[in-house]
Design a protein around this nucleic acid. Sequence first.
DNA 1: AAGACGAAAGTGGTTGA
DNA 2: TCAACAACTTTCGTCTT
Length: 312
Amino acid sequence: MPEKKKKVDEEIKVCPECGSTNLVWDPERGEIICRDCGLVINENLIDYGPEWRAFDTEQRDKKARGGSASTLLKPNKGLVTEIDQYNKDIRGGKIAAKNQAQIQRMRKWHKRISIATSFEKNLATAFSELDRLVSSLKLPESVQKEAAYIYRRAVKKELIRGRLIESVVAAVVYAVCRMKRIPKTLEDIAKVSGSEKKEIGRAYRFLKRELGLEVPTSDPSIYIPKFASELGLDEEVQKEAIEIIQKALQKGILSGRGPTGVAAAALYIAAARQGKKKTQKEVADVAGVTEVTIRNRYRELKKELGIEDVDI
DNA sequence: AAGACGAAAGTGGTTGA
DNA sequence: TCAACAACTTTCGTCTT
């Protein structure tokens, strides 16, 4: 794995996200964190760090074992037998479909065996994960409290069974962000959580239904300040972008469209109209969509709102 | 040389029979 | 369980600046 080795050797001094040199090494979590944008720079380092090392020493036998590398990311330090959510074998290949059912049962029973002290243990694990997510994502304390409350409800209703605590915690955090209109995408959360976007989304929809969470349909405007500041666009541009979105909302042409794509297009239009043009690619990158999506939204907005052509 | 544009095909997930 | 479907991405050729 040459590309992984390379990452280990590299000394990281500048945040690749915002260019800041204000980086902190957090030995407890094994991460380098950017103080300015909250980016966790090499969160994966510890996954292979301790392991590849053992391969060239005589400690190999002592250290070699199944399971993941010792990581302090997890409250149990990752040393407890755990059957993960991914249906992959040790080489990363897919496990045959007929065996997946068996694995699923094993997972389920494994959970049940340890259910004796379950409630407290579950909460302890979840809350430390919650703590980690909240600080990585720079979320306010109110989010943490609200999330903890919702999580408790979920545990009491036994909605966690068959799901990884990590995924559920991430889902709850996502739900609270949506409820409080904090601009975090599923992707933002997936990036700092150990779980995949897919899993978190699934857990989110499930919780929303089972707990009857009232989540407002997401408004693209909430992403405007976030994207704008990453692009260095001033408040005039933001104001106009938000106006564009409001008009589009009233016309009802936004239903079913991804909020980040809409926000990106509105920002692109507003910037160009004020002579502060950014390229589609620049906008697309901070919004986490493609240029094509921006163009599609751009076209729709222009047509429906009668926005004059942009001149530079 | 870089950016913008849009057509066409592909992707992963949801929905409804 | 399977096919239709919507939103979005990937890829690519062409036009514009």
